[in-house]
Design a protein around this nucleic acid. Structure first.
Lengths: 88, 88
DNA sequence: ACACGTTACGCGGAACGTAAGAATT
DNA sequence: AATTCTTACGTTCCGCGTAACGTGT
């Protein structure tokens, strides 16, 4: 589970569409698909129910989405606070 | 800033010694040193005052240490909760 | 048949280990 | 001089993009 993967995951969850999420993230569809799969493999969980017509979160996906938002926000905050201490 | 780097950082902070931290992490000294440097470059901050005799946290390092603990714990919790929803 | 997600595959960059170098005490 | 961190360098692994393929409607 990496920060980049969490960002990818949130994008797909919000767009409910790999293609749109990929464009929004400035990556290609395959790259995005692979990273989501890597995340699913890592967590031993399926995060989305895919079909050419719809992409919806599984229950596990819903749970991860909550945590992903918190983690990404907290990471951002960590960066800011660390840097605000002083450039050195 | 990646989770692996945060783990490395916490180990060095706790050991106050690159060599011991490296052994504890099952990586070599140089790899650890490089990753800490990469993290420092990424954050534009110096995290440790190094000398052959002592390795101590800078103020910025102290701040990061707090956040690192929270982030790693929260990530661990996310894993657990996601997996507890169901293997699928 | 079309739209969309997934494999297949080759490339470039990042992480690691071994070996050699610098620095403080 | 010894211990410890760092730089140099070659190798391996991982993420990415292009192209080809599968799948459901």
């Amino acid at each position: 589970m990496e920060f980049r993967q969490l960002g990818y995951f949130v994008a797909v969850a919000e767009e409910r569409h790999f293609g749109r999420a990929a464009r929004r993230l400035y990556v290609t569809g395959p790259s995005l698909s692979q990273q989501i799969q890597a995340l699913e493999r890592d967590l031993h969980v399926t995060l989305f129910e895919r079909s050419p017509r719809s992409v919806v979160l599984t229950p596990a996906g819903e749970v991860l989405l909550q945590h992903a938002h918190v983690l990404l926000a907290r990471a951002e905050r960590a960066r800011d606070e660390v840097r605000s201490v002083g450039p050195l």
